[in-house]
Amino acid sequence: MTDTAMAATALGKRFGRRGGWALRDCTFRLPAGRVCAVVGPNGAGKSTLLALAAGLLAPTEGRVTVLGTDPASARARVGYVAQDKPLYPQLSVAETLRVGADLNPGRWDAETAERIVSAGDLDPRKKIRSLSGGQRTRVALALALGKRPELLLLDEPMADLDPLARHELMGTLMARAAQYGTTIVMSSHVVAELEDSCDHLLLVGGGRVRLAGEIDDLLAAHTRVSTATGSTGPTSEDGSPDSAPGGLPELAPHTVVESRVTGRQLTALVRPAGPLPDDWRTSTPSLEELVLAYLRNPQAAPLTPAEPEEAAV
């Protein structure tokens, strides 16, 4: 048994020979049993990353492994729901689930699939083409969960759902994670949507991984500080103020993600490199603050604790 659900090493994907890179230099490790949020703006490379992990795309460079093997070999153990929830429009809901059973002989969990569908008050005889977006999501999730995946990859799973269905289906997913230790990876461009459900974060921006790790660790590694400018040491002694990374010499030893001066007030989000001065006011950022700070500042140094893959034994 492996305890790495998903790992990427220098993973990159370019569409077309001269096209731009949708994803590049992607290196991270997701331990098994986590619920991981893949967050980033639209077009950041989230879908590409998930499609690579699902084996739908071949990487242009680097490699991705899922469940300790290559995506093609892990196919039967990985569930995937694409962003636009493709389903066969000509089939009924019940027929769709039967196709799921046909495609997953020996693995199919008909009871689970039917339970997810019936929780949405869906008539099994209804044709897929007549379903609403939320109902399609429900059927797509039923197909993905029916195959008893060890790793579930969900691309914007909640986008089409009303708040009630969103809560209920998220509950179903969490129950799955609790009961079977299923690793769940879901993408969204709305951080708040995933904050309570996820314990691991992958922040993707501009085709690169900006943050990767346990959410608690990532929050703990960052501090929001506010202080009066020039309160710690004279500015002039540190040379020209603008030369320091982040532009403010007070913050010099620390990694600055974002800083702002309003009047004489300096506020910043930093990764402290050591103890902060006692007279600074500090607080832990919220996940949303953290994510937004990184997205607003594409030049901020990424935090992706690179663990050797061999650690998984």
């Binding site: 699902a54 084996g55 196919r75 636009d84 693995r107 993905a144």
Partner: peptide, 14 residues
């Protein structure tokens, strides 16, 4: 075009 092929590939079918 509609991604149902990809759906099959992420079910038990290579």
């Amino acid at each position: 075009e509609h991604g149902t092929a990809q759906l099959a590939w992420t079910q038990g079918l290579s």
